[in-house]
C-alpha cells in the first residue's frame, strides 16, 4: 500500500478516497464475479462437448463393429466402397445418423430449430 502512495502521491487516499476506491472496487468485483460465473458455464459447455464427442465416437465404433460382423457373414468378404446398411434399421436411429459425413457436418444441426 505504501508503494501505491509512492507512485501515486496525487491520489487523495484519505477518508474520502477510501469510499471512492471502495465504490470502484465494487464495480470491478461485480465484473469478476460475473466472469467467474461465465467461466463455470464455459467449463460445463466444454465438458458437454467432450461428452458428445465421446458418445459419437462410441456410437461410430459400435456401428463399425456391426459392419464388420455383417461383412464376415457375406462370403465375398473384402471392403466395399460404403458400409452396408444393416445398421440403419428404423429402430436404430443413432447408428443411422452417424454415417461417415454426417457426424462431422455439424452445419446441418446448426440451422435446424426443433422445439428445445
Amino acid at each position: 500500500m505504501t508503494g501505491l502512495y509512492a507512485i501515486a502521491p496525487a491520489l487523495p487516499l484519505g477518508k474520502a478516497g477510501k469510499f471512492v476506491v471502495a465504490a470502484y472496487i465494487v464495480f470491478v468485483a461485480l465484473i469478476l464475479v460475473y466472469v467467474a460465473i461465465m467461466a463455470a458455464r464455459a467449463q460445463r459447455l466444454e465438458s458437454e462437448l467432450a461428452q458428445l464427442r465421446r458418445d459419437v465416437e462410441a456410437a461410430r465404433a459400435v456401428e463399425t463393429a456391426r459392419a464388420d460382423e455383417a461383412r464376415e457373414e457375406t462370403p465375398a468378404g473384402g471392403r466395399g466402397p460404403r458400409p452396408p446398411v444393416v445398421a440403419s434399421q428404423r429402430d436404430d436411429v443413432a447408428a443411422a445418423r452417424s454415417g461417415e459425413p454426417g457426424w462431422r457436418a455439424g452445419g446441418t444441426a446448426t440451422g435446424e430449430r426443433g422445439p428445445a
Partner: peptide, 25 residues
C-alpha cells in the same frame, strides 16, 4: 452478447447431440 453466445452455443450442442445420437441420447 457474450452470455447470449454462451447460451446459444450450449443449445447448439444439445441440438447437435439430438441430431447425431437421437432423442434418447
Amino acid at each position: 452478447k457474450y452470455e447470449m453466445a454462451s447460451k446459444n452455443a450450449r443449445s447448439q450442442v444439445r441440438r447437435l447431440r439430438r441430431t447425431l445420437l437421437g432423442d434418447d441420447a
